[in-house]
Design a binder for these strands. Structure first.
Lengths: 350, 350
DNA sequence: CGGGGTGTTGACAACGATGTCATTCGGACC
DNA sequence: GGTCCGAATGACATCGTTGTCAACACCCCG
């Protein structure tokens, strides 16, 4: 039996003993420091290989002060494709710079956001990217003053000054709704997430701006907010369609709402079919914020307000790495553009 | 000017000085140790608040030996909904236990998988969950012997003994294909990911078993492997449909392939429509491994081999936490069941 | 009134690595 | 031949925290 069952990891000093040199020399070899004789280097490397030594990154980053080569990402919900796409983009950017990523979901809870933020600071991450849930980030100030870098993503900070990377929510929505208006729609159902969320407010502002520009009144009966789940969106759309004077088009405030409304309209169509009606609702026009992978496979045409999610994540990551690298310029707000994209089944060329 | 611009974080000893106690007493207060007089506790807490002290988790976990309260997750691609759902489930489970999660994507590269694994070990994560890309994990052995816990997820380990949590790939596929056969299909197109991937091999084995059971020959012309992208799947399906004696049904080896094939069939339908044909391909039956959120909104009916992704992630996480908690029982393979689910548009009740 | 808790506190070492500085040893140079 | 210089190496302190152990005060009991 030559195998050893010691559960203890070899340390730099075990290696030093095995190689017959000092710990400092081992440290030098590990860090590719100059001025170590090739012969000694070789002996140390041999010992490292034999013992299966791996440098303790924890101890290393403690001693050297900063640079844990780790960043944190706080998002709302990793299971949402929008956020997982963001996380993937940030993770890839970090990876290319030898940095690891701790991802955490705040589930739209300001309290959890705060806890996660502070916990990640305790881990001395080099910086954080955060899609904030809360409406006040002054609690971050002490950490910012102590050299923790933070970039806000998709939603701006409140109560502190920090970099943010956003998309043109209001402008994109306005353009989309104007397109609906241009197609003759005058009754547009609006289904939105909670207005406590920045992006929802901005998008609603875009709706109002477009309506005002066309002189179309804003009808509260056609606006539903606080919709957090596709099922709620479906219910809201169904209710509007069954009401008197139903909308001829919908604006859906995000991808989950779009999906819910699509499902609801599909069911309404199905009911009509079952009753032998013509597909009466097929001409309901749909505008949704956020593109999604399967949009082209949806059973009806829709317009989406699209933007490059990967770009959004990369831009935030790039900003953060600039900061970590020592950039101390005045915090900036970056706004990425959106564009309208027609999705859904290809119409047969008639 | 009373504010201080020192970028240095206060340490436990700054707090001790401010409160007029020893560092050890501060440590006791931080850790809720008993036997500190309430009055002293209060003084220390006041000092902590005033200085904005936060315990350095790095130093703490270095001193106390183990327990970084961090686990690692290595998956193929966070942008894929399957993996992000896994990551979300694992992250939530970890969060509930006060543990953070470092997620990394190996992009199906065994070499990258290995690098990520070793890097995470250097960070002294308490354990790792890995969806392996490689076919040999003996490189992990030294780490395992040094008390790093590893659970394999979705694919089993090779070359070492470790826990794994899988789904019933072969059985689920067999059941699905048998259902197709039961509906009379004899020519079933099979589109699969690379057979270097365990799950792809297992699923193909399920296909063969079902065919063999029904006495239907396995026709190589109807099998396409190494499909890594929806577009490739679409191309493969299109080619088969355009060939002589096209399949009357497809088995799609994963969600991305299903999406590609759906898109291809949709385009073929569209072409027929454009030429004034009837929707000639509508009766092509579709079976796909993996459920996906928008399956019900797909333009045609399909059957999916579904399983609970959240459960998969939670089960692996639970196993890992058991191990971290000290469970040293013999490694086990857990296989979760699948079920067939009919998806797609609701047919009008006729 | 002394012995033996119990409760509170602090001095010191240690975790595993790296920065600082000193030491040693050749060889180049005057 | 002595001096100086740089390369190679090691002793030791240090990062921020916690474990160990000792010191001290106080109280209960016999």
């Amino acid at each position: 039996m030559t195998n050893e069952d010691k559960p203890r990891r070899p340390t730099i000093s075990d290696v030093a003993a095995a190689a017959g040199v000092s710990v400092k020399t081992v440290s030098r070899v590990i860090n590719n420091a100059p001025s170590v004789r090739p012969e000694v280097t070789e002996r140390v490397l041999a010992a490292i290989g034999e013992l299966g030594f791996r440098r303790n990154h924890i101890a290393s980053s403690l001693r050297s002060g900063q640079a844990t080569a780790t960043i944190g990402l706080i998002i709302e919900d990793l299971a949402n494709p929008f956020y997982s796409a963001l996380a993937a983009a940030v993770g890839r950017y970090a990876r290319e710079r030898g940095t690891h990523l701790i991802t955490a979901s705040s589930e739209e809870s300001p309290e959890l956001e705060r806890r996660l933020f502070l916990e990640l600071c305790q881990r001395r991450v080099d910086g954080l990217i955060i899609v904030p849930a809360g409406g006040d980030h002054s609690y971050m100030r002490p950490e910012l003053e102590m050299n923790t870098q933070v970039v806000f993503l998709d939603r701006p900070p409140a109560g502190i000054l920090a970099d943010s990377v956003l998309i043109d929510n209001a402008g994109g929505t306005r353009a989309g709704v104007e397109a609906l208006l241009g197609r003759g729609h005058r009754r547009i159902g609006v289904i939105s997430d909670s207005t406590t969320i920045y992006t929802a407010r901005e998008r609603l502002a875009g709706v109002r701006a477009a309506l005002a520009g066309a002189g179309v009144p804003y009808d509260d009966a056609l606006v539903r907010t606080d919709v957090a789940h596709p099922d709620q969106a479906a219910a809201a759309a169904t209710a509007m369609m069954r009401g008197g004077d139903p909308p001829t088009a919908f604006f859906c405030g995000n991808n989950r709402i779009t999906v819910g409304v699509l499902a609801a309209l599909g069911r309404l169509d199905g009911d009509h079919d079952a009753r032998g009606d013509t597909r009466g609702d097929t001409d309901v026009d749909l505008l949704g914020f956020d593109d999604f992978e399967l949009a082209d496979l949806m059973p009806r045409p829709l317009t989406v307000i699209a933007y490059d999610v990967g770009e959004l994540g990369r831009t935030a990551a790039a900003r953060l790495f600039d900061r970590i690298g020592g950039d101390r310029s005045w915090p900036a707000e970056t706004v990425l553009p959106t564009r309208l994209v027609r999705r859904g089944p290809r119409r047969p060329a008639s």
